[in-house]
Amino acid sequence: MASPRVTVLDYGSGNIRSAVRALEHVGADVTLSSDARDVSEADGLLVPGVGAFAAVMDALKKVGGLQKIGRRVAGGRPVLGICVGHQIFFDEGVEHGVRTAGMGEWPGTVERLQADVVPHMGWNTVETPADTVLFDGIEDERFYFVHSYGVQKWEFDVTQPKMRPPQVTWSTHGTRFIAGVENGPLSAVQFHPEKSGDAGLQLLKNWLGTL
């Protein structure tokens, strides 16, 4: 059986190599690229992201990343976002009073966490939905977070009765925030699975199993 082909979107984000190595460790054939064909033809696309929301959006625009990601999502082709690569799928990000539009796949605003200590850095547990696929078998494990911003409200309006609402995973640091979303072909997590030991590797393996 051939290994699933995964493209890690290369748009200048940091921490890409560790994500590539983690995917390779769990059996993926990985390409690091922003080429349109590599993005469209891969079995799965991983969107990494570290730093500021606005900077990541700008960097993605420069390589046509938003259109490439959007075409995959529209075509029902699997995408996984990590950290700021998770945040960009929401409506907007607010940093230092500046609002930056996101991709708008999910409702919500990325805002500074309401906590005594920010950034949220280190290991934390998550609250998973009952029918999760990404967290299957690792529901009680801890994952590694490094972030100061997150989405703290979920207001998904299902306008079509037959539409299945996304599955949302939560975590808490001062306040509850969204730690993961599973929405058909589009999934994303706020933490870094590539830095989360065996639990993170299992999450990536679970995602590969959906490709």
Rank of each mutant, 00 (worst) to 15 (best):
T132S: 15
T132H: 02
M1I: 07
N15V: 00
L80W: 03
L60R: 06
D157V: 11
V26A: 02
V50T: 10
K61Q: 15
F145D: 08
Q114N: 15
H96A: 11
L23N: 04
D10S: 13
S18C: 00
A55N: 12
V50G: 06
I69Y: 03
L208S: 09
T125W: 12
P165A: 10
H86M: 09
T169H: 01
D35W: 11
Q114R: 15
M57H: 03
K61H: 12
G49K: 02
V79G: 03
T169Y: 00
L60F: 06
K195T: 14
T128E: 00
F90A: 01
E92N: 00
G93A: 05
Q167Y: 01
Q87I: 06
V189T: 13
T100V: 10
K153M: 08
D38N: 04
R142H: 13
E24M: 05
Q87S: 10
D10V: 01
F145Q: 03
G64Y: 12
M1H: 07
G150A: 15
D140L: 04
A101G: 15
P107E: 15
D35H: 15
V117Q: 12
G64K: 10
V133M: 02
G65D: 08
T31C: 12
T169G: 10
G180K: 00
L134R: 08
L211G: 01
H120W: 03
G108N: 07
G137V: 04
T125H: 13
Q152L: 13
P193S: 12
L201T: 08
G85E: 03
V118I: 15
S196F: 14
G174T: 10
G49F: 01
V126K: 06
G64T: 05
G150D: 06
E141T: 06
A36S: 14
V126A: 10
G122I: 10
L204R: 04
Q190P: 12
V6W: 10
P119D: 05
G97S: 15
S18P: 01
E155W: 00
T109V: 14
G122C: 12
V47K: 02
Q152T: 15
S13R: 01
A55T: 13
E155V: 11
T100G: 13
A22S: 08
M163K: 13
V26Y: 03
L9M: 12
G12C: 09
W154C: 08
V189M: 12
H120L: 02
T128Q: 06
G108S: 06
